[in-house]
Design a protein around this nucleic acid. Structure first.
Lengths: 353, 353
DNA sequence: CGCTGTATCCAAAACGTTTGCAGTCGGTTT
DNA sequence: AAACCGACTGCAAACGTTTTGGATACAGCG
């Protein structure tokens, strides 16, 4: 395997010159550089990542370290997320390390190990919980990180995050349903152990208020875990007096919406936007939201933009360490704090509502 | 940040002893070891990954390097795959690097760079094409790798792979349909640019032959790309004379099956196992196969077993470099060659067939 | 008392880079 | 003529480990 020595020898220069030539320093003769570059190519030379990160203090690697098994609810979305993140990393010329740990204890240990072994320059967090202890841990450890999602008490703490405005998305959804004539809108939510579930629910509530509707406790179901529970909840809904049946069901995620979808179809109810049909909506715009019939009306999380923003922020953090961050304005993007960005999602109207 | 020197100093021993104590060598006093371990803990010491892999020749990292954008067809499955792979890596105590490249040219460069920079000990390939040039490249480069999937001419070449027996899966599916009374079984396939599509198709053909059925060219559609094409193909199927309508449609993947599902529902046709309904089957058992109504009958790719096997094989390859590989027998697992393993998939019967 | 064996420990080399500092060599300024 | 400058180039240190090949001390043995 070729090292910098081989290149230096063959080019008849010192390793210093090879290094400088390859790294684009200005103090090397243009002819020399060309020769070095050519020979490096011939020899198939690539600098050793290990040596490089040992010497310089950078690994050019970031790690995506989700809590797996935390909530099955969010799994399908995070698989999508990884894909988008990998692509964004490629664009930023970064390597992406993916780690998972089973238990919270493992997670703590994992993060410490990651930081301690200097395996990565920064961490991307996801699946943030309402009062997520990992954030404090990472701040103590002193490793650059950006979270995808907020704790609910983000007012107190300042830590960098990017989030999609779940409340705004839900409001848009409710507004859409209201325009379509719906007045009895049910809400199904997954567990409140992730913060986005809370934000989305509060968006639903705000949406109702904005249109003068009142929340009907019998039509709001929380902490839904699996399909059986969802099916039972749907059954309860339609066991209400006929004139109190909801005409639309808003679900806190696409996965849950698909469960609702299934339950309605299994119950022989028709889904859609026409009168007499039940409207169903989701959140996330997973690829499979378009695969059911009728297609699921939902809110698209701007995955590519989210990942790009996450990385932008993280890269800045890594570079500046603790210097202040420049805040530039951009459309579709709100700065909540110095390192806190909110992205607005987009309504995707299909046939289910 | 604590280094081995700090630990050594505080423990009053040399760095050699610290290293050996922490790595479980036998020639260090048990008392000393305990003290070292304790102090390492206090100091939050973790060995530098860079230094370690610079010195020892191992990174304890493997890289998953799929060809992205090659075929959208296979995307959803590979997102699932990453998740399973990450978990398997965690179990093997390996780090997982995920890289993607857009173009084949980038891919070549990416692989060379990966090997040249010694960033990882081995590579996991996926999405193997019928005549995949990457395999030759990797053999030239001389980096341990295992492919998930086969080239179609795997007879000639010997390279390590793990694959799920698509042909066997399809045969099981056809047999199941035959038992259910189906005699006119259509086949829809995605592009033949991936080898598994070929294997699955040949399994379908074998399945027909085994039951004395003959392939009807009008009922076999290849190279289906998007939903519009699928919808058109379904329409053509049911434009045939009534008594020549297929009673079942076998799709080469779940994704495609869901398109068929959608097309049938949109055409007002009923899907299911009862007489008069159209049966639909898929392949992969994506999570969403269970989310449509009726649930999709399909063939489950044993994802966890696949990833575990891939890693087992790769780890052996890394350790032995070029020594012969021990071949141990196990249920549900066939050795095609010295480093070539075939896993048998499992039929998952739901309500769509 | 010297020799061998065992249990423990350590110094130093090596891994492949990047970079601070110092050198060389023409040409230009004072 | 001396001093200086700019453009290049090279030496050697440093990054944090693991490992090789001893050292040291102490016990048992003849």
């Amino acid at each position: 395997m070729a090292t910098i020595f081989h290149v230096a020898e063959k080019a008849g220069v010192s390793i210093t010159t090879v290094s400088r030539a390859l790294n684009g320093y200005s103090d090397v003769n243009e002819d020399t550089r060309r020769r070095v570059v050519e020979i490096a190519g011939e020899l198939n030379y690539y600098p050793s990542a290990a040596a490089r990160s040992l010497r310089g203090k950078r690994t050019n690697t970031i790690v995506f370290a989700p809590q797996v098994h935390a909530h099955i609810e969010s799994e399908p979305f995070f698989k999508e997320f990884i894909g988008a993140l990998a692509l964004a990393c490629f664009i930023h010329d970064l390597s992406l390390l993916v780690t998972v740990a089973d238990s919270p204890k493992d997670t703590r240990e994992l993060y410490r190990g990651l930081a301690g072994s200097r395996r990565a320059d920064g961490i991307i967090l996801a699946d943030v919980e309402p009062d997520d202890e990992r954030i404090q841990l990472l701040q103590e450890i002193h490793i650059p990180f950006v979270a995808f999602g907020r704790t609910t008490r983000y007012g107190d703490l300042t830590y960098p995050f990017v989030d999609v405005d779940g409340a705004a998305g839900m409001q848009a959804l409710v507004a859409h349903l209201y325009r379509q004539g719906h007045r009895r809108i049910a809400y199904f939510s997954g567990p409140f152990s992730t913060s986005y579930a809370l934000h989305r629910y509060s968006g639903y509530q705000q949406g109702l208020r904005q249109h003068g509707l009142v929340e009907d406790a019998r039509c709001v179901v929380h902490e839904l875990q699996d399909r059986a529970e969802t099916q039972a909840a749907v059954a309860r809904l339609f066991a209400l007096p006929r004139d109190e049946h909801p005409t639309a069901i808003v679900a806190s995620s696409d996965r849950l919406a698909l469960d609702v979808h299934y339950a309605l179809q299994a119950a022989g109810l028709s889904i859609g936007r026409s009168p007499g049909q039940i409207a169903v909506t989701g959140f996330d715009d997973l690829p499979f939201a378009a695969y059911v019939h009728p297609g699921l009306t939902t809110v698209r999380q701007p995955l590519d933009a989210t990942c790009a923003t996450l990385l932008d922020l993280l890269v800045i953090l890594i570079k500046h360490k603790s210097e202040p961050i420049p805040q530039h304005a951009e459309p579709g993007l709100t700065w909540l704090g110095p390192q806190q960005i909110l992205l607005v999602p987009e309504l995707v109207i299909r046939d289910s509502a």
